[in-house]
Design a protein around this nucleic acid. Structure first.
Lengths: 248, 248
DNA sequence: TTTAATTTTGGTAGATATGACTATATTGAG
DNA sequence: CTCAATATAGTCATATCTACCAAAATTAAA
């Protein structure tokens, strides 16, 4: 396999040639409305071709000197004001013909999408409707057909969210500093479905693990017995850090 | 922040401008030598700048009309002849300054690496020493300093391999059609370490799951009682397909 | 040929975890 | 005060994990 150094373009072209890429970052941004028990995903309406006026995941093209993660954070910062979040890279979609812009000039530029997955704290997330023709939190089950291959990206992100929630402490990145066990259960059952675990067993299991610290205060929210407030003790969590983590 | 719609290029450039990318695919190709109990990774010696004569993961730049996965398979096919393997996308590394070639022309092209992780059947993997100045299976614990950020990619792939092995049936992609429970245990303990499980318990657990079919034959290899031969029953495995799968 | 070593196989018993379910405590509302 | 709502704290049968142990079937050595 020669080339790829002092390559001359005509020889490259004869073998197919190296593709030039624009690299986009698209974010599957999730949020959980604990009050209404809904899992939400952030969609924006495109205001340019292709897919003009269609809903899509918020995305951007990567700029000079900008890392992929920088770009992912920039998208977030442009769309919502939020202080607490979890973000990680999801997958890279890069087949030819995934973006109709590629067809415009033959053997021209390719578009590649590095997708990121984010979970943000719903209560403090303020949408910025700025320069887009629409922006909205969509309940996951009511997401329409999206631009490009974004439905596929979203599907991938949704799977990751469920898996990640079960096996790593991302929930505590989007819960307030102190929270009740009900809050925690609401979050889990909204994402994973009611039948992932009985509330009582969920409580017992989480408490036994020992990284939820009772801060000694209680809150009363409407009727019922007041709930104890807990905080996530990251030091006590440390032993679990290198636990089961797998990939689809 | 607006933009990315009707953007004019001068304005983009003022804010940094869009980067142009070459996209490379780098493979972390693993193999397990069951006889010598070693986990191996495939390295090639670079025969061009940058990092001339340094070991690296096998990689290539993506060509016109070629999907990322196509490129990953092409790398594999160029380096080893193998019929049975498992391959999946790993992670995309794309920070600026990860490739010294970027520095050559200021604000020029960026190099992005989409990494893939592969596991191949050692017994049938035939290396192709063709057009490279070196190619070798390295025991994972003796890997030297590699070109670019390839040590980091490899580390990432190694983690993925261990997690994936525990929670999905990739082992059966690199075992022969029929195998003994010892073969299976050797594979697991070589990758995960001896102390991941007692042999007897490993046996019991795997057999109870019910997707290992005893084909009724036995093999005797040296001393000791002959072992039963099993095959992986993918139909019986189906119910486990959507089981715990998480991500680092 | 007898004995020992090796390897596969098939367990057991105790601890631990899981899942369905029940009971008690503390509050707000009427 | 009583009741509905909610948080908390269990029980108990069952499944699973873990650390062992012993028999069976073969080869290697004495």
């Amino acid at each position: 396999m020669p080339g790829r150094g002092n390559h001359d373009l005509s020889a490259e072209a004869a073998r197919g040639g190296l593709a030039d890429f624009k690299v986009g970052v698209d974010n599957a941004i999730f949020s959980v409305d604990i009050v209404l028990n809904r899992l939400l995903v952030l969609l924006v309406m495109r205001n340019e071709a292709p897919f003009l006026h269609q809903w899509s995941l918020p995305g951007t093209l990567v700029r000079h000197g900008e890392s992929l993660e920088d770009a992912a954070y920039r998208i977030l910062a442009e769309k919502i004001r939020v202080r607490n979040l979890y973000l990680e890279q999801l997958y890279t979609f890069g087949g030819p013909e995934r973006d109709p812009r590629e067809a415009l000039d033959c053997y021209g530029v390719r578009y590649l999408s590095v997708s990121y997955f984010a979970l943000v704290r719903f209560a403090e997330a303020e949408l910025i409707a700025d320069g887009v023709s629409g922006i909205a939190w969509y309940p996951i089950e009511r997401v329409p057909t999206l631009a490009f291959d974004h439905n596929r990206i979203l599907e991938y992100g949704y799977t990751r969210l469920r898996n990640k929630l079960e096996y790593s402490p991302i929930a505590f990145d989007v819960l307030p500093e102190t929270f009740t066990l009900s809050d925690l259960y609401q979050l889990y059952s909204t994402v994973l479905g009611e039948n992932f675990s009985d509330y009582s067993n969920f409580r017992a299991r989480l408490l036994k693990l020992g990284f939820l610290a009772d801060i000694g205060k209680k809150v009363s929210r409407g009727a019922g017995r007041p709930a104890s407030l807990y905080r996530f003790d990251s030091e006590a969590f440390a032993p679990f850090k290198d636990k089961p983590l797998v990939f689809v």
